[in-house]
Design a protein around this nucleic acid. Sequence first.
DNA 1: GGGTGTGAACCACTTCACAGCG
DNA 2: CGCTGTGAAGTGGTTCACACCC
Lengths: 234, 234
Amino acid sequence: MTSLDSTPQPVPDLPDAAGTPAKQIPPAAVARLTLYLRALNTLLAEGIERVSSDSLAEASGVSSSTLRKDLSHVGSYGTRGVGYEVQYLSRHIAAALGLTHDWKVAIVGAGNLGKALARYGGFESRGFDVVAIFDADQMVVGNEVGWLRVSDVADLETVLHRTGANMVVLALPAAVAQGICDRVVAAGVHSVLSFAPVMLQVPEGVNLRKVDMATELQILAYHAQRAQAPGQTA
Amino acid sequence: MTSLDSTPQPVPDLPDAAGTPAKQIPPAAVARLTLYLRALNTLLAEGIERVSSDSLAEASGVSSSTLRKDLSHVGSYGTRGVGYEVQYLSRHIAAALGLTHDWKVAIVGAGNLGKALARYGGFESRGFDVVAIFDADQMVVGNEVGWLRVSDVADLETVLHRTGANMVVLALPAAVAQGICDRVVAAGVHSVLSFAPVMLQVPEGVNLRKVDMATELQILAYHAQRAQAPGQTA
DNA sequence: GGGTGTGAACCACTTCACAGCG
DNA sequence: CGCTGTGAAGTGGTTCACACCC
């Protein structure tokens, strides 16, 4: 997805205490597992019960060898000569990704982007509950957004604790992002997704991911420019 | 990053006709070059004229060796023992990314996300002009969004040609994404950025990038779950 | 001395090819 | 016989260390 990783902490590869089956899945594979999950859920909705690595790979836009290697990080849940049971595999991938319980997400910033995220239906269906949305503008505080009412960012800590939010999405201007991010982290949140076009500093142990639309367009521009460049027929 | 790459076309590594200085920059490096550009522009705004690889690397959140290696793909624009001239380097990175001329962007979907994108100030300042926004809902067509008026998606081809749009952002429901994407491609657009949570099929030569917020949250969930897992102190 | 630019070593991911199982 | 699961080979990207230039 988006393209830019979170903090690239080397991860000391903890020696893994006795019963923990967590095997440390490569980041690239984790990103693709979410795609498989999406494809599997689509198949499930269509009532399809079994699928081969070949067709699931095509539906996800990857090669079948990549798919099988990725699944091998999660476990052996297929039947040789047959394929995978859709629901069974879906459950196991979800478990490996930590989606067995719901996550509570708070959004900071109730501008266009914040509202878009709050109303985005794709979250609930995939195990993410939006439990709060904040803004600093007193004209916006108290307004309804979807099922929620906009909270004052002054009450950030209080509301985060009351709602039990364990993930925060930053949808706010670059200038204030670091300040809010610090408060969010201080309030005990370890997972942050930022849409602000700045480099945020977070302490060790906090997981930060960044999405920047301008960056995405710039990457497209690079490829477009190369494609248009003269001298292809050479 | 978004995390998810565009179509991973092997790229036959064209033999490069005579004068072309295009050297094929690795995808990972391209993504980071946009970060350097952002950091450089921040420095420029602060009136700073020179910078070393060490401090630019820190401002961008990468290691200084990675930074220097990345810049070496673009060219040798530093002075040994001194560092880089901010403006000079910024210009050359922009040129390498194909940002010398402005790109014209059309947005399809005038829901919350589409509106958020249309009004997002970060585009114009970085060489992207939003020239059109479309919607299928007749209640929305004709409304003002920022400086634009929402066009009817029925007029997609006409308006794309009239405005000269060469990039399209899809901010619409998964169900209609493929159909619109096909029309956009047929209209001659080669660069598409999709926010729809589906796997889109595009012909060879079209550049597609995907951003999916649910995917980003799922990746965060994976890391959060691992961090919470028992047995760290072992 | 100081900091860039780069070949070489290292590491991680991807692809291949086939063994193993139903 | 078909398709999964996986060691092994191949590829690409990152890190290191130092030559080179100011």
